[in-house]
Design a protein around this nucleic acid. Structure first.
Length: 571
RNA sequence: GCGCUCGUAGCUCAACUGGAUAGAGUACUUGGCUUCGGACCAAGGGGUUGCAGGUUCAAAUCCUGCCGGGCGCACCA
């Protein structure tokens, strides 16, 4: 299959071959008056022991008569140590708009990954616990990376791993059994029960803090679950289902789906066998009664694997899961999207996996936590904001605003639009900040319709589509030479950069570059829209502008897809 | 104690990984509705990039040392 070659890439290659450069350092001028594409001359000048500014000026003079380059550039001039290229507007418009028109949903994607399979694990809820804003950052981030990998030519396999077998479950069941009001509410819908379990768990953690008696009871319950028989085990089976149903209802609301979901309870047994093997191989050893991985010689400390009482710790399941993944799928890379606080743990885990003989590349994709303006959150003390609470608060604001603007709309329509905006807002807020920054989630700020927000972008898209709708189907071939406005050129340059943004954001696992790009694109459009009339323009110009607008809408739509955001035709 | 990480405008964040006069949003002040959707647009003020050295043509970015916040470091996940 022939893939798209994008204009800027093509131009850079043309320049490099025309100048016979080995290495070229391209950038974009800070202001459009300076040019559209820029070549820094520091390095080549140094090689030929010349002043960079003179070097640039010499090059500009040489290139003036280059027939090949004149096809693409209306002007080439030096500005200090930079050689600046002005792309010919007609060529730019034709190239960008035609490429978008042909590629449609594929505009921006590339073949870097060469179809290699990559697994990406994210969301990773714990049954019986709440699904909170931290999980939302994880799932939004993981899903965006999943889309970015696909757009960069990888075959990405999104999976989730649900911890359904830890001590937290015994705590929840302990509290559940003690409180008849929990049991009596089991007539509720399954997903509501999943939510209730989360509440029950946080309460249990609080109750158990200074309660040795309770802790002993919890340990007893844990043993019963591990033995897979008895009343607590039966209750585990039932409540586990509630949580899983609850998670799947969340994924559905968020429009996210996984190729496969793994469960700790299903990998733990083979994990115990695996751990025995690793012990005979000498990778693990006993110490102070516990089974540990001694990684001191790699400066990674010590990782306990099995408690001195013989019960399994978290790595047992993780090791088993890793080998499961590699057995089942032919992976070139395995990515784990997990909170940065576990970075030492993942270094240890990856070291053990490589000692086991796996040579696939392992990536721990980290992000920092989410907090609220009021302060830190912890699932133990229970002052977390859950998905449900956040969603409801955002939804209330966004639907209020929507119904204010559309008093003729039905309640259902308002609800549907507000829900789409809610999900878009959550994802956008989680993605717009780079992963290594703590997010202070400010609901008031997030739910705005102006500024760097999901609603601002959606509004821009809705206006675009509104124009396109008015045009109907009378749509002939456009003469793109009619796009002569400077603002049109600015828009086209920005549109031409989209493929680079996708490539870079993918290589750096950084969706915030996409959010920023889309915001700037909509800003440019809003400015253009305000100043230049599209539908009232003279027929030939109108057609050309409509072609521009359609390509623009396509790019916005593609960007929304990467972010996992549903584009609204009307809002 | 050891290690990781962050520190940029009042606030929330960018800065193409060493490049042009450090940019956006918000807040504040001001201007624009006989508009293709004003949920918009335009203009203005606002900075010793935590501090001090160093590396070089060039440093918010790299190195060293401080200061301040956050997070990890054996039976939590």
């Amino acid at each position: 299959m022939l893939m798209n070659i994008y204009i800027l890439e093509e131009l850079k290659e043309t320049i490099v071959s025309a100048l016979k450069l080995e290495k070229a350092n391209f950038s974009y001028p800070p202001k459009p008056e300076l040019g559209d594409l820029s070549l820094a001359c520091f390095e080549p000048a140094q090689k030929s022991q010349q002043n960079p500014a003179e070097f640039a000026a010499d090059l500009a003079a040489t290139l003036k008569d280059n027939q090949e380059l004149q096809k693409y550039f209306s002007d080439i001039k030096a500005a200090g140590p930079y050689l600046n290229f002005f792309i010919s507007p007609a060529y730019l418009a034709a190239s960008v708009i035609e490429t978008v028109k042909k590629a449609k949903i594929a505009y921006g994607s590339n073949r870097t990954g060469a179809d290699r399979q990559v697994m990406i694990e994210y969301s990773n809820g714990n049954t019986h616990k709440e699904y909170h804003v931290g999980h939302l950052r994880n799932i939004s981030y993981g899903d965006a990376i999943n889309h970015l990998l696909d757009a960069n030519g990888y075959r990405s396999i999104p999976v989730s791993y649900i911890n359904d077998f830890g001590i937290h479950i015994a705590k929840t069941i302990w509290n559940w059994q003690k409180n008849p009001e929990y049991q009596s509410s089991s007539e509720a819908k399954k997903e509501d029960k999943g939510y209730l379990l989360g509440k029950c768990y946080s309460e249990a953690s609080r109750l158990l803090e200074d309660n040795p008696e309770g802790k002993a009871e919890v340990a007893q319950i844990m043993k019963e679950i591990e033995s897979r028989s008895g009343a607590s085990y039966e209750l585990w089976k039932k409540t586990r289902e509630w949580s899983i149903e609850y998670f799947s209802s969340i994924y559905k609301e968020l429009g996210i789906s996984f190729s496969e979901i793994f469960y700790e309870s299903e990998v733990i047994d083979s994990g115990l066998k695996l751990v025995e093997e690793l012990k005979t191989k000498g990778i693990l050893r006993l110490s102070e009664g516990a089974l540990i991985a001694d990684l001191e010689k790699y400066e990674l400390g010590v990782l306990p694997i099995i408690r001195s009482d013989g019960t399994a710790l978290y790595p047992v399941a993780d090791l088993s899961l890793a080998s499961e993944k590699f057995k089942k799928y032919d992976l070139s890379r395995s990515i784990y999207v997990v909170d940065i606080r576990q970075s030492l743990y993942f270094k240890q885990l990856f070291k053990i996996i490589s000692l086991m003989g796996y040579d696939q590349s392992l990536v721990h994709l980290t992000y920092d936590f989410v907090t609220l303006p009021e302060g830190m959150m912890s699932s133990r003390t229970g002052n977390v904001i859950t998905y449900k609470e956040l969603r409801d608060k955002l939804f209330a604001r966004l639907s209020e605003e929507t119904s204010l603007r559309h008093q003729d709309w039905t309640a259902n329509r308002i609800k549907a639009v507000a829900m789409t905006l809610t999900v878009a807002t959550i994802k956008f807020e989680m993605l717009k900040v780079s992963a290594d920054k703590i997010i202070t989630f400010n609901i008031e700020e997030a739910a705005r319709f102006d500024g760097y927000t999901a609603c601002y972008l959606q509004y821009g898209y809705a206006r675009l589509k509104s124009i396109v709708r008015k045009e109907g189907f009378s749509f002939g071939a456009a003469d793109l030479n009619q796009l002569k406005e400077p603002k049109e050129k600015e828009l086209l340059i920005k549109m031409a950069k989209y493929p680079e943004v996708i490539a870079q954001a993918g290589a750096k696992y950084n969706p915030s570059e996409v959010t920023k790009y889309l915001f700037e694109l909509v800003q440019l459009f809003s400015d253009y829209y305000h100043e230049i009339n599209i539908l009232k323009a003279e027929s030939k110009i109108r057609k050309a502008r409509l072609a521009l607008i359609k390509a623009l809408a396509q790019i916005l739509h593609n960007g929304f897809d990467i972010l996992g955001i549903e584009a609204l035709e009307e809002m």
